[in-house]
Design a protein around this nucleic acid. Sequence first.
DNA 1: TTGTAGGCGTTATCAT
DNA 2: ATGATAACGCCTACAA
Lengths: 341, 341
Amino acid sequence: MARSANVSPSTASVVFSGKTAVSEATRRRVLDAAAALGYSGPDPRAASLRTGRSGIVGVVFEEHLRAAFLDPVKTALMDGLTEAVAPLGAGLLLLRDDRDAGAEGGGASLGTAPLDAVVLVGCSGRLRESLDIVQSRGIPVVVIEGDAGPGIPQIRLDNREAQRQAASHLRSLGHENVGIVALPLDADRERGPVTDDRLAAATVAVSIERLAGARDVFPDAPAHSAAASSIDEGLGAARALLALQPRPTAIIAQSDLLAAGVIRAAEAAGLRVPEELSVTGFDGIQVDGLAPYELTTLVQPAVEKGRAAGAAVARMLAGEEVETLLFTCVFRAGNTSGPPR
Amino acid sequence: MARSANVSPSTASVVFSGKTAVSEATRRRVLDAAAALGYSGPDPRAASLRTGRSGIVGVVFEEHLRAAFLDPVKTALMDGLTEAVAPLGAGLLLLRDDRDAGAEGGGASLGTAPLDAVVLVGCSGRLRESLDIVQSRGIPVVVIEGDAGPGIPQIRLDNREAQRQAASHLRSLGHENVGIVALPLDADRERGPVTDDRLAAATVAVSIERLAGARDVFPDAPAHSAAASSIDEGLGAARALLALQPRPTAIIAQSDLLAAGVIRAAEAAGLRVPEELSVTGFDGIQVDGLAPYELTTLVQPAVEKGRAAGAAVARMLAGEEVETLLFTCVFRAGNTSGPPR
DNA sequence: TTGTAGGCGTTATCAT
DNA sequence: ATGATAACGCCTACAA
């Protein structure tokens, strides 16, 4: 509306965008008029329609937001994403992958938000639906740690290889009797011993791959799945494993939080770490309150993964092709693993 | 463009919106054509321009996202917000209150995103800038736990009264010598004893109010501020307080995470909780890994606060007036407080 | 029940 | 350096 106020119809646009040179005189005039009208820059909605860009990148989680952000890895990921997406002038729109998204009259989300691109975070099955919606809208998409179909760029991690390293580390220390605390196997997040049946029906790639890595070294290691990646869950699962006969001399946890729980369980059982029980984690996050311990763990580049996703988005928006990216973990020896006995 | 495909120009709109009755025949025709063209519903950008609604609510944090989500209260808040905003058909756009938002050519954020409303989370000073931007754009805004100017609806908590309850509880148990672990006082987040000078310069309302509540009961209680709400920070602050002469018999922590750290510090110092040291928290969150302990704490309705913010947004979008809301904490006695000695 | 007309506020292109 | 013009794709009266 700056145009009606003054004399210039679309020169105003230039004043605000700075795409072309403007004489100081008219520039002043436009700005003054804008101020008088209480006009504060172009309407993003209209600009968006015209340019075809909204500056908004959707981030889709499978879980309750609360659950997602409980996981430090996801948080770190978001951080990297934010960072990488900022120079693009974009913001992140939080979306949840709920089944009835478009069903009711209400749900905005994936189907109806003005998205430039989408990042899918997570792994299990229902993700496909979201994928379908996004693809039918023709929106570029990147998947982090999930099994999307072919042709969709992914940001992945060498879970199996990394977990194998931790297992090898334990073996080289002399451990032969090792237990595994696994992340949830599927959307049901059921706790309990990981049987062959359950494993066959598992859908969460991360859990499956890390389990495979551990069993590459210890094929018969008993595993117990947790309902979430948390200290309390780790504690519960470890309690079950420590009750086994013979008792494991080491426990491989599929996340640092689970590992912290394992340590607590050991303490509660009067077992010293690492003298009487070795523990390894996964992620390389900083576990709040674990103070004297430094986990032996696999450090995954969580922030980088986020950044990479953002960079991928940027490239896709620029019309370039993007390939799947595989990130690598770094093994870090802490003070929670040692020789058995 | 389903219109050019078939015969109906804008009847298509009706088919998708369902605002008017359409004969099954044409409905079919439109849908088929849409499918053939790979058209998946109206373009949100255009709809947004026309209706003036984008279905996007901005959430502004002062801190790094990573820091914000480390705080379980903020996460719970986001959860409530998501929930309350969903029926509105809206999503949450994550925004950070960084100083150079509009300066560079890049930054999208507050100034340029297609926002229907904004929720400001946090308290300290810089929030004003964000407020100015939003208000000049004429976007409805709600502030959670922050001191916005008059006329701006807020979602607040009875911090002082609540903290006073915890303090009274300790006093009625017989404690006379009490220490306080405080949240950060200002944006600098400096650790250390809380002097009168520092307190006078403090800007974070939550910390100030809770401190006041504690000192309503124990006027001379020494306080030590932490750099963040975390277990490790609580541990550090408690270490300092426990070194005082005479040693406090109880410590009031301004958050549950800090309280968990205090407990760890006590354990490390060989003090049993609550026999030799009583500890109270604040928030009523579930602290992962604190297992045997149940904090004596003030339960704040974090999710409700988020929901209330969402509801406020909904009402404002409907053109109704919204008042500031004051929420109340509930005192919950756990097993971390008892008589001194 | 369906079609027609106009405009939402920009920006890009082109001519001036 | 500035102005005119034409979409961008939709929605909402209103008319048929």
